[in-house]
Simulated assay, not measured.
Amino acid sequence: MKLILTTEVSGLGAPGDIVEVKNGYGRNYLIPRQYAILWTRGAETQIASIKKARDAREIRDLGTAKEVAGQLGALKVKLKTKAGASGRLFGSITTGDIADAVKAAGGPTLDRRRIVIDNAIKTTGTHRVSVKLHPEVAAPVDIEVLAS
């Protein structure tokens, strides 16, 4: 089955890529979750617009990615959220919260899908997350979670 990916699928490809997958995987997983659409000749224009949007979001080259990684490493990111007396959060910190906090701290605009949280952030204190800026560059970011 030939499909066009609409979002990034780990181990398969990026948005706008044309992939060949088994029928069941495409029909039962990718298409219902809107990770992909069926490939047709008319979908070529959709591929072009998806790739254009991806290129606008993506960091162009390795040098730029290393520069942004340097900016992220020097950044002091503080995130205020509701927490109990013991320091346990009501809920958890999401990748969207982190992307907003980085931007508020004066950092670059990050795509939330590029932020990797190893362990769920459910307590106050300092936590380290990783940001995939480029296939070869991942920048660590320290997030200080404070009770509000």
Rank of each mutant, 00 (worst) to 15 (best):
R113C: 03
G107N: 05
A104H: 12
R114Y: 02
I115L: 00
S86H: 12
R112C: 03
A85P: 13
D111A: 07
T94H: 09
A85W: 02
F90R: 01
D111I: 06
K103E: 14
A105D: 07
G107C: 04
S86Q: 15
L110R: 00
G84L: 01
G96Q: 15
D97I: 06
G107D: 02
L89N: 07
I93L: 05
G106N: 05
I98D: 10
L110T: 01
V102H: 03
G96C: 13
I115F: 00
G107A: 04
D100R: 15
I115W: 00
G84D: 12
V102P: 08
D111W: 01
P108S: 12
T94G: 09
K103Y: 13
I93H: 02
G91H: 06
A99L: 00
T94S: 15
L110C: 02
A105L: 08
A104N: 14
R114I: 04
L110K: 00
I93V: 15
P108V: 11
S86A: 14
A83Q: 07
R113N: 11
R112F: 04
P108E: 10
P108A: 11
S86K: 14
K103Q: 15
S92W: 01
L89S: 09
G96P: 13
L89Y: 03
P108M: 08
A104D: 14
T94Q: 06
R114Q: 14
I98Y: 10
L89M: 08
A85E: 15
A99G: 04
R112Y: 06
I93P: 04
A85Q: 12
T95C: 13
I93Q: 05
R114K: 15
G107S: 04
K103W: 11
G106D: 06
G87K: 03
V102T: 09
G84Y: 02
A101Q: 06
L89C: 10
A104I: 10
G91S: 10
S92N: 12
G106S: 05
G87P: 08
D111E: 11
D100A: 15
I93W: 00
D111T: 03
A101P: 07
G107R: 01
I115M: 00
S92P: 09
R114D: 15
L110F: 00
R112N: 08
D111H: 07
A104Y: 09
T94R: 10
G87A: 02
S92C: 12
G87S: 05
G91L: 08
P108C: 12
R113A: 06
D111G: 05
G106I: 07
G96R: 15
G91C: 10
I98A: 13
S92V: 04
G87R: 05
A104R: 14
R112W: 07
V102Y: 03
I98H: 11
